[in-house]
Nucleic acid binder design. Structure first.
Length: 170
DNA sequence: CCCTGATTCGC
DNA sequence: GCGAATCAGG
């Protein structure tokens, strides 16, 4: 099953995960069959460039003179994506920390992907592809996508927040 | 060197 | 519209 276009379903997933604060790589790995570039490209096309971060993006990007040589340099992509097991492996790893609190989130408060709105906490808990997955659903702070607790977590540099899976050969 | 998002541009 | 290549910053 190969989808070459962005189905509405996927776009929605993309938007939610992006706004939830996941990195493009993680979203790409989660959706599968797409690179982080694809995700970022789509995000930009959707007009969702920055959610809360973009410190130096204001700097003028330098234009690039496109050398013809690059076309020949196009490496054939082996592409080992679609590897759900791999994605699952690191997804589990990153949730190791916040789980302590997330574990306590009452069932009645938990929300599904499509039930999120401006007033609910967008914090993702667990593996997005797992049926166990849910969003915090707490009362979001005004102007923020997270509740009080998760805002603190989200905007604090958790040392182990970033874990990487597939490495691309450039 | 690893990652991140941003941008450009050929398709 | 799509995404690879590339860039610049952390």
């Amino acid at each position: 099953m190969t989808v070459l276009t962005w189905s509405d379903d996927r776009v929605e997933q993309l938007k939610k995960l992006w706004e939830a604060g996941l990195s493009a790589s993680q979203i790409a790995a989660e959706l599968g069959n797409v690179t982080r570039n694809a995700v970022i490209g789509k995000v930009h096309r959707l007009g969702l460039s920055g959610r809360a971060k973009s410190p130096s993006s204001a700097a003028p990007r330098q234009r690039k003179p496109r050398p013809a040589a690059q076309q020949m340099m196009r490496v054939s992509r082996p592409v080992s994506r679609g590897n759900t097991a791999l994605a699952h492996a690191f997804e589990v790893e990153i949730e190791a920390d916040p789980v302590a609190f997330d574990n306590v989130v009452p069932m009645s408060q938990r929300l599904s992907l499509l039930e999120l709105n401006e007033a609910t906490c967008h914090w993702p808990v667990g593996d997005p592809s797992s049926p166990e997955f849910f969003f915090c659903g707490g009362k979001a702070l005004t102007g923020l996508p997270y509740c009080a607790h998760h805002s603190r977590v989200a905007y604090q540099p958790a040392a182990d927040r970033r874990r990487q899976a597939p490495k691309q050969t450039r």
